[in-house]
């Protein structure tokens, strides 16, 4: 993070300001702590899990939480605690992977669109408008339908629709900076467009994009879980919070923890990422 700050127009002051504000932002601190915990759990899932997440025990289903099974067992006798942990690594991995490509394309298209303007800007702008017109779940479900349910479908869907937010935000910053004095001066001084974009505009546009990335990961995570619930996402037997909630649905009134615990895991992730995003926004003074 300090690398981004270091290349800003006034590097030293900005870095100090960022770190100083970061230390004073309770949201950022809480977000970092919650997120670190989550990532640790996801990465260490194979070691933290007390059972094989897919091992069925057909005569020991629907057990209540106990020292042996911390979160109880599901209908097929699988250990819910171990499944929730493994699902964390599945869902987090997919969400992060699915977020990377649209982040890169979105930032790139936003820079190009805002910096060069003209016809290219117009075309990219209309593509953004078109994609935004489709309700998020309608377009995601249609793409998953076309490409096939499962992980591949999720990546394809977000690669196609996920970049528009970054493109909008980055384009706005870029376009406003293009007209600013120092960019005009830099170009006049013979710096190449590439250099101006990479060294001067990108560092200023990036913080906003990174803040947006946090929100987008929440959105993708919720979408993965929703697709799982609808049977279009992560396919069994791979543990996933969405399919776990769906499996527990017949028991919501009697054995609430089966559906509720994976649900809480989703909410925890959402809070952690939102706090991280808010905190970064505070520290970077991004609105």
């Amino acid at each position: 993070m300090s690398e981004f700050a270091a290349v800003r127009p006034a590097p030293a002051a900005a870095a100090q300001g960022f770190l100083g504000r970061a230390r004073r932002s309770p949201a950022l601190i809480a977000g970092v702590v919650l997120m670190t915990l989550l990532v640790l759990v996801a990465v260490l899932a194979p070691w933290l899990a007390t059972h094989d997440p897919n091992a069925q025990n057909l005569t020991a289903g629907l057990l209540a939480p106990s020292p042996e099974h911390l979160f109880g067992t599901d209908q097929l006798g699988r250990d819910i605690f171990s499944r929730v942990l493994h699902a964390a690594s599945t869902d987090l991995r997919i969400a992060v992977l699915a977020a990377i490509l649209p982040f890169l394309t979105g930032v790139l298209l936003g820079l190009v669109s805002g910096y060069f303007g003209g016809r290219l800007d117009y075309v990219i702008g209309r593509i953004v408008d078109t994609i935004i017109a489709f309700p998020f779940y309608v377009i995601v479900i249609s793409i998953v339908f076309a490409v096939g349910a499962g992980e591949g479908g999720i990546y394809a869907a977000f690669a196609i629709v996920g970049w528009v937010g970054y493109a909008r935000v980055v384009r706005a910053t870029t376009a406003s900076m293009r007209a600013s004095g120092w960019v005009i001066a830099a170009r006049g001084g013979g710096l190449s467009d590439r250099r101006v974009i990479l060294r001067h505009i990108l560092p200023n546009a990036l913080p906003q994009a990174v803040v947006l990335l946090m929100t987008e990961i929440v959105l993708i995570m919720v979408a993965i879980v929703t697709l799982g619930y609808l049977g279009l996402g992560v396919q069994p037997p791979t543990p996933d919070w969405g399919t776990m909630i769906a499996d527990g649905q017949p028991f919501v009134t009697t054995k609430w923890w089966i559906s509720a615990l994976p649900g809480f895991a989703v909410i925890y992730t959402g809070i952690a990422l939102s706090l991280l995003g808010d905190g970064l926004a505070d520290a970077w003074r991004v609105k």
Partner: peptide, 23 residues
């Protein structure tokens, strides 16, 4: 309300059914 952001809509739906319809 920011907690609500991370809540999948379908999950909220399940909760609402359990509380307001079934109970």
């Amino acid at each position: 309300p920011t907690i609500g952001l991370g809540m999948p809509t379908f999950w909220i739906g399940l909760l609402l059914i359990t509380v307001f319809a079934v109970h």
